[in-house]
């Protein structure tokens, strides 16, 4: 069974290949440790994005498809599918906002603005690995995707773009352990933070002490922090073993496409004009007097 004798012979003439293997393993282990520094890890981002671009934009039209006319039909089908997805998103948004809109209209006579149009992209890669839960979509900077764009599918919020290439975007899913989304209950109006957990449901934390969600109500993004626009559907809330958990709405939409919506832009506050300090000779008080300097 055991290969006795052979080992002794080999031990005496150690192969340089063993040294090479050792060097490789040591080098890659050192590389992993070196990447604990964000600056070094960031240095590899261009490599990731360029490889992601190649993986992401994999939709090549073959010569035979061009000759047979199949490519044009496929393109048309893709266009129509994209249109259907757009329309279903508007339908979901309309249902979500209908009640609130009515009361707004009555109170303020104000019409809400339609959600901004984004870029629809196909998911080219889903990694179910032990590391970050991410998706790779086949649209990037060239298609108008912006850094930090919000990814939605037919069901609801999918995640946020964390890495942007020319033709691909890496989306950190809301299911990821490190994902944190500020949310609000649609009916209760309770604010909370949604934690991902690599499962089908996320946990709600940081709620006000004397407030509670309504079982089964929809959970929407609250726009706090400015990373997500307000009112995107995240899921439905359920109480499970004392915790409020959100069943993600995105799992209901599984056509393999996402819409990448530009992130909300919060304008920086304008600096207050300089006020001459201690100018006692000034005849009248300036309108900006008392403003922060």
């Amino acid at each position: 069974m055991a290969r006795s004798g052979r080992t002794g012979q080999r031990g005496s003439r150690r192969s340089p290949k063993r040294l090479v293997l050792g060097v490789f393993i040591f080098a890659f282990a050192a590389l992993i440790i070196a990447q604990s520094a964000p600056q070094i890890r960031g240095a590899f981002d261009p490599v990731r994005t360029s490889v992601g671009d190649r993986l992401g934009s994999g939709e090549r039209i073959s010569l035979w498809s061009r000759i047979s006319g199949q490519a044009a039909k496929d393109r048309r089908i893709h266009e129509l599918e994209a249109e259907v997805r757009d329309l279903s998103r508007y339908k979901a948004a309309a249902i979500s906002m209908a009640e609130r809109l009515e009361s707004y209209e009555e109170l303020l006579n104000l019409m809400g603005e339609p959600p901004p149009r984004g870029v629809t992209a196909r998911i080219t890669s889903e990694s179910e690995g032990p590391f970050a839960q991410t998706l790779l979509a086949n649209a990037g900077r060239a298609q108008g995707v912006e850094p930090g764009s919000v990814a939605m599918n037919e069901g609801g919020l999918v995640g946020r773009v964390i890495q942007l290439g020319e033709h691909s975007s890496r989306i950190l899913m809301v299911t990821d352990f490190n994902s944190r989304v500020p949310v609000i209950g649609e009916v209760s109006g309770v604010h909370a933070i949604l934690h991902g957990g690599n499962t089908n449901s996320g946990t709600l934390t940081d709620m006000p002490e004397r407030s509670d969600f309504v079982e089964g109500e929809r959970i929407l993004t609250s726009s706090e922090g400015g990373a997500f626009p307000r009112g995107l559907i995240v899921g439905e809330v359920r109480k499970a073993s004392g915790d409020w958990r959100v069943k993600y709405a995105m799992s209901e939409g599984s056509a393999g496409y996402v819409q990448l919506i530009p992130p909300p832009v919060i304008p920086e506050p304008l600096p207050a004009p300089d006020v001459p300090a201690g100018d006692e000779t000034s005849p009248a008080a300036s309108p900006t007097q008392g403003a922060r300097q």
């Binding site: 393993i25 890659f28 590389l31 993986l55 890669s125 990694s127």
Partner: peptide, 19 residues
């Protein structure tokens, strides 16, 4: 790249398994 892991992780796993 696919699993969005730090570079070197899967290389080490593959090479150690090979070793």
């Amino acid at each position: 790249v696919i699993f969005h892991a730090p570079f070197g992780c899967f290389e080490v796993v593959n090479l150690l398994t090979y070793a």
